[in-house]
Design a protein around this nucleic acid. Structure first.
Lengths: 168, 168
DNA sequence: CGCTTCTTTTGCGCATTGCGCAACGGGGAG
DNA sequence: CTCCCCGTTGCGCAATGCGCAAAAGAAGCG
């Protein structure tokens, strides 16, 4: 753990900001991954620093977009039983425009550029298969430059954990 | 918004618990989606109920697994630049065993059963392409009953928002 | 080495919050 | 109507979040 990771996070304007994390940042992030409401004093006690330091770091990490403290709700419990992944193949010229369009949709929870069989990866939530059908037939057709789309429906989620344990 | 959604959440043993949410639950969840550290008193003021009620509801929602208040860390910033999606086609007989195996891997953040071209959907994080290569060559080969695997690498994340705004 | 300047950390005081607990109230069952 | 059960409420206290100014490093320079 002696390397500095730098990340280019894109904000909504497409501008980028370079952010580098040190060891303390990473430890704080690890503490918050499991329980986003952990008290700053607890974390400070664990990491042997002052509470104000932890608070300042967390504020910076949240402001820069590295950390999001959010309430993740099980979609099925909330009433959005239909989860779909779109594997979109877009023409190179239309790629960024298509990405922007998918990002703007409220139903999408994840949009990324991929390499492999498809260009764009889209994760979506719908209330039921009716609204999914409406979305796929009407709005998806309005996106230009789409060559091919694979629709994969998730019928059961077995694991949904967004914390990085100690990897390799 | 007058229907009761019931969800079957699987815990680690595979047992299931039926949970039904009412309007207040859903409103509380909406309040917490954007900022998992919102003060209970704030939410109570907004929803015109007492703080103890909000606190009790949140505790129940967290205990049942409907709500996870977590710190989501941008993987690239943390140092896990390699994000991969596996579209696995497993034979019906080996399906559940393969799902269990993928779930047990620390590198996987999301495992679900799908319909479409593949059976199992797996989202993974790796530090670099070396560890990814090691994972794909050694450990993936040990999983029985896998007919086909498509590997899709995410090179840039454009949107990562896990809150459900007002849909349809 | 000494000095300046800038950034980060620390300690402290205060307003706010989280939490436990006992009391209140409203809807069914008998 | 009465009893019972469960969710809600109000309250008091300990713990937390927050702002701020002082202290401690870290980096640049003659």
């Amino acid at each position: 753990m002696d390397n500095d990771a730098t990340a280019a996070l894109a904000d909504r304007d497409g501008a980028q900001a370079e952010i580098s994390l040190d060891d303390l940042d990473r430890k704080i992030l690890q503490e918050l991954q499991d329980d986003g409401r952990r008290a700053f004093r607890d974390i400070a006690r664990t990491l042997q620093v002052s509470e104000a330091t932890v608070r300042g770091r967390v504020k910076r990490l949240r402001d820069t977009g590295v950390l999001q403290i959010l309430g993740y709700v099980d979609p099925a419990a909330y009433g959005y039983g239909t989860m779909v992944v779109l594997l979109v193949k877009a023409s190179p010229a239309a790629h960024s425009r298509a990405v922007a369009e998918f990002t703007a949709w409220p139903e999408t929870t994840w949009v990324s550029t991929t390499i492999g069989r498809s260009n764009i990866y889209v994760q979506m939530l719908c209330k039921d298969s009716d609204s999914l059908y409406a979305l796929l037939t009407s709005r998806l057709g309005d996106v230009d430059g789409i060559v091919d789309v694979d629709v994969i429906q998730e019928v059961k989620v077995h694991k949904a954990e967004y914390h990085y344990s100690r990897l390799s």
